[in-house]
Design a protein around this nucleic acid. Structure first.
Lengths: 371, 371
DNA sequence: AGTTGATAGCGAAACGTTTTTAGTTTCGGT
DNA sequence: ACCGAAACTAAAAACGTTTCGCTATCAACT
């Protein structure tokens, strides 16, 4: 036995010495050829076994031993070159600093992993050019599928990217859809999410309610605004957009932010500086909620007591601040899982009818303020 | 001109038709060969140009046009197979739900990108097996270097992974070192971080100070504990570890958590349930700080007023809660940048002397409570 | 015993690049 | 008009796989 091992090491060494020493890095890995030589079986047989094929029991042992002794590891580049598949999925996010996305990715990754795929995450850090670049790089790198939380990219660009390979790149949008881009998507029922939030504020007696939404070209933001409008309409409250201040400026109760911390912070202050500020507020994503909460704190405004408040996503936060905040929670785990499942089907080549648009329900953590 | 385009399309189509239709997915991409044929230039010239070499101006135009018309995109698998480099870096994190890491990754990615590398992020979600698996998958061939926030993996396993390729895989540890694993690392001066935090509590008049640290086999956690001990010693305060309660149980002022939310929550309650609870507390990472703050809130304990408090990392949080918290902030941006720089040098083959261990200073946001 | 079918195994041809070799063309400068 | 450098050529050899089309083997049927 020891004999065999020593012999193997000799073979290995001599093979390595045979390698040209010209390359940049001295690549000295064993290949399937070495396994073939060492085991005395043909290349084809080794490959077949390595890919789950049947070989005689005796040969299986020979191969296993050869692999072990030589420290053979499959070269995924070579395999991918041949098979045109990488068994990897690219995930593209606006940022990695929001726990909301982290949670989505976590269950997405798990779902994909169970099917043998590895997922790689990139963030474009809210940068328009970077978003495109990351998508292109992923396509070029031959991922087998893409999960995308899109922000700036256009339908045209997405179509171009999706078709930049021979076959159409499987792709799933998460959290947001892009108008004009026909694609599988996992989103939440944004309209009813804000509808419910605003309804809750109305039921608490509020009639003068403001909302901070994101950029309206992001589907999510737009839908959330519509939910707000509809709730007010259904309860017979006028959506106030007319001028009210003495200087003739609008006192718009729909403030449009950029989905970031500063937006929430700034717009909250805008609201409070109005001549006739709203008595309740709905803030529609994680970062803006954080911003608004911060601004409120700095102004010594107690949310829930001094004004009605419903935030989004910041579930941890609402346990911490006092009194606890009402928060719309999105089913992040489920979103990730569904995204994975749909993508897997596409990558398996299943031709599902039409694009799959899965719309999940959000949950309103309703916290009533008591003295 | 139109003629040329049409001709190109014809050529392209006929090439594609030439492709065997056996493959799983009908791969119909143009190759460098097609570019060569279309432009009338040789393969070598195209390749040279594509890799930044000089060609005659006329030819450069011909190539550019051919690339455009044919929709040629380089096949990175083929290239990587040949060159043994992928121009990608793998980043492995315990989780993607902590803004702290998101911030590190952001500047890391930027640094690497400027040098032409793409970074792919994986999270192992605090799972021991997954940590190993992710590292192995990355190594297996796909990346030129690795940035790792290590948690469970041992020095032995890391060494094995690092050498599982022909040449040694360039690798940088961030935030934590692994004893016995000689490796470039970017960490903060944890000892002085907690030393400063505890010192501040002492200066505020506290003598009975507790600390919640992470698992002591994580270097970061251990160093933070040492900083705590040393501060107490330097100020002539006994580190209390003896039994004090009537039932003879220890009332240990050093509580060991698992660096997660629940640990912070539970240990905080442990402290407060003591017969002789500490008058001040230091909590030493993001999640545990969140947990402790939550527990305090539920017990109606006002941090900073009722007991002294210094947390870690949760910089946004400390702006929000009232009164504002004292927090140790780590230079996340700088950590990412330095990690990128060191890794780039290693990947470029620079043989730097010994492992580079860069130790950065943290910053204490010192918020004094005033009535 | 002869035929059949299934299965293990084999050699060789790809996959799309980069790089080398050894020789040819181009072209500005003297 | 000639020199020499720089740009180009065609062809071929890798890189490490998978897979096509084939043969050999062998047990199980008629």
């Amino acid at each position: 036995m020891n004999e065999t091992v020593r012999e193997a090491l000799m073979k290995q060494r001599s093979y390595r010495e045979k390698c040209r020493s010209g390359g940049r890095a001295g690549n000295t890995l064993s290949t399937i050829k070495d396994v073939s030589k060492f085991s005395g079986l043909s290349l084809a047989t080794i490959s077949k076994y390595l890919n789950g094929g049947n070989v005689r029991d005796e040969n299986r042992q020979r191969i296993d031993e050869a692999v072990k002794v030589l420290g053979y590891r499959i070269n995924r580049n070579a395999r991918s070159l041949k098979t045109n598949r990488t068994m990897t999925v690219g995930v593209v996010m606006p940022t990695l600093s929001i726990p909301f996305f982290g949670s989505v990715i976590s269950s997405l990754d798990q779902t994909l992993r169970e099917a043998g795929y590895t997922s790689f995450v990139c963030s474009y850090d809210f940068d328009r050019d970077l978003e495109l670049e990351k998508l292109r790089v992923l396509c070029n790198n031959n991922v087998d599928g893409i999960v995308l939380v899109a922000q700036y990219v256009s339908a045209k660009e997405l179509n171009e990217i999706r078709n930049s390979r021979g076959s159409e790149m499987p792709m799933v949008l998460v959290d947001r859809t892009i108008t004009g881009f026909v694609c599988d998507s996992i989103v939440i029922d944004n309209l009813n999410a804000t509808y419910g939030a605003v309804e809750r504020l109305i039921n608490a007696g509020h009639r003068h309610i403001g909302i901070i939404v994101g950029p309206l070209d992001i589907s999510t933001a737009n839908e959330r605004m519509v939910g707000y409008r509809r709730a007010l309409e259904d309860y017979g409250i006028t959506v106030e957009t007319g001028p009210r201040r003495s200087d003739g400026m609008h006192e718009e109760l729909i403030q449009i932010g950029r989905y970031d911390f500063e937006s929430g912070y700034r717009q909250f202050n805008n609201f409070m500086d109005m001549e006739n500020p709203p008595t309740a507020l709905c803030v529609t994503n994680y970062d803006m909620t954080m911003g608004a909460v911060t601004a409120a704190h700095e102004r010594n405004i107690i949310l829930g007591r001094d004004i009605g408040f419903v935030g989004f996503d910041a579930v941890d936060l609402c346990r911490i601040v006092s009194p606890p905040l009402s928060i719309v929670e999105q089913p992040t785990q489920l979103m990730g899982q569904k995204a994975g499942e749909v993508l897997l089907k596409r990558m398996a080549g299943e031709t599902l009818p039409h694009p799959q648009v899965i719309r999940l329900k959000s949950y309103l953590h309703n916290r009533i303020y008591k003295e």
